[in-house]
Design a protein around this nucleic acid. Sequence first.
DNA 1: AGGAAGTCTTGACGACTGTTCAGAGTCCGT
DNA 2: ACGGACTCTGAACAGTCGTCAAGACTTCCT
Lengths: 248, 248
Amino acid sequence: MTDVARMAGKAIVGDESHVTDQPDEPIVTNEPQVTESRVTETNRERVSRRQVDKFAERRAQLADAALQTLAELGYARTSLREIAQNTTFSHGVLHYYFSDKQDLITHCVRQYEAACVTRYDEIVAAATSADQLKREFSAAMAQTLRTDAPMHRLWYDLRNQSLFEESFRSDVLEIDQRREAMIWSVVSRYAELARISAALSPAAAYAILDGLFQQALLHHLAGDDEAAERLRGNVVRVLDTVDGPAAP
Amino acid sequence: MTDVARMAGKAIVGDESHVTDQPDEPIVTNEPQVTESRVTETNRERVSRRQVDKFAERRAQLADAALQTLAELGYARTSLREIAQNTTFSHGVLHYYFSDKQDLITHCVRQYEAACVTRYDEIVAAATSADQLKREFSAAMAQTLRTDAPMHRLWYDLRNQSLFEESFRSDVLEIDQRREAMIWSVVSRYAELARISAALSPAAAYAILDGLFQQALLHHLAGDDEAAERLRGNVVRVLDTVDGPAAP
DNA sequence: AGGAAGTCTTGACGACTGTTCAGAGTCCGT
DNA sequence: ACGGACTCTGAACAGTCGTCAAGACTTCCT
């Protein structure tokens, strides 16, 4: 049945709780046939696994289209029909792969996170001097602003939604945590290379750099072509002052 | 006619352009009767002025109720009927005082700004030492977080909307400018009292402190009771490092 | 007191929303 | 090539939305 496929697909992504749906219709027993006989069991398992893969694949594909739509229109104005128009499917299919809109957007948020928080890892790993790290990281942030502005305004939009809708909050806080860790890996590595001790907490460092990025995003999207370059300069200046107030 | 009153009301607030509505119905000539005769003219002017005042007053009252609703529900989920339920009126009255939803929310944003950007003026004016200014400003920010969290999440929500909807952008940028000036008056005065030269641009100082506040807001609304206190500490630390990299 | 102008309510409208579902279409093991 | 499971469509649903207009109510000048 359809519900079995849904359950299997969801299990892969790790849908732990959220409201347990299927309010009225009696749920068919979950995969009872796998324990029937040896030969058919392995076959069915193989088939089932492949279908689950396809299921998860399409889920990801649809979530990606949803991310594009959300990045373009924002949370408030994104409808399921609009999302479907960014795909080759009709809007009904979204409810075949996601239990409801909330489920879809939650999946989107997690998919966004996976593609987002490893952005500066290579720069940190490759840096051999504080100066190099400072230059490359600030340049990378400016470049991110230039090329990924729509996706980032979506992130800020969703993070803001979590200030009103509690259902987003845990996911948002988790992603924010990872972004903080990402920034801290840069800052702490910088301090290490510069042989200084950072005077900032990881949270403060993240808040400061995120604030700079957000301001630059606003001005960049408002048509200010120099916003990215100013962001780069500000990031450099912040890194210049991360050493403690006392002498090194 | 109703339209005359609307125009008069709008003129007070300074509704300069935005889309010129009234697409089909022929517009009645604007106040043609004031040039008829001397005596009735002054009377009519007096009456008209009083009515305009009442009109503007109710507009402000309705915009205030709208602000409360927006702060509670967020932009995405605030409907005109919901706003009206926070008043003693029905939802139809909103279209008597505002041409459309956009007009209402724009008015809300401006009303918010008027009540917002003078928050730290007294502290700046009263401060006699850098240390006092630092202590009182950081404490005031923490207090703002504790008492005005809903209104501030609305501000961030609307600012984010402007990343998607161009119609908000000019108002948002203007308010952001004033917030920046407000922050800069604090930072520059601090540097003056401390006899140092600030190493930060006004924009960077604002972005950094705003980033700290926004992070604290997220955690505060997520139930973190120590968010305000941590914000205070972070603000103090930022002010401790505003002096230039070179020696004073 | 009469009546015009201003104010507000009420109900309706068309458009759009998320969601459901019957059924058509597709895939694939047998 | 049959048949069952999976996938997808498209219409229909019950709500909600912003907007509007007809009319009742109030206010206040003459």
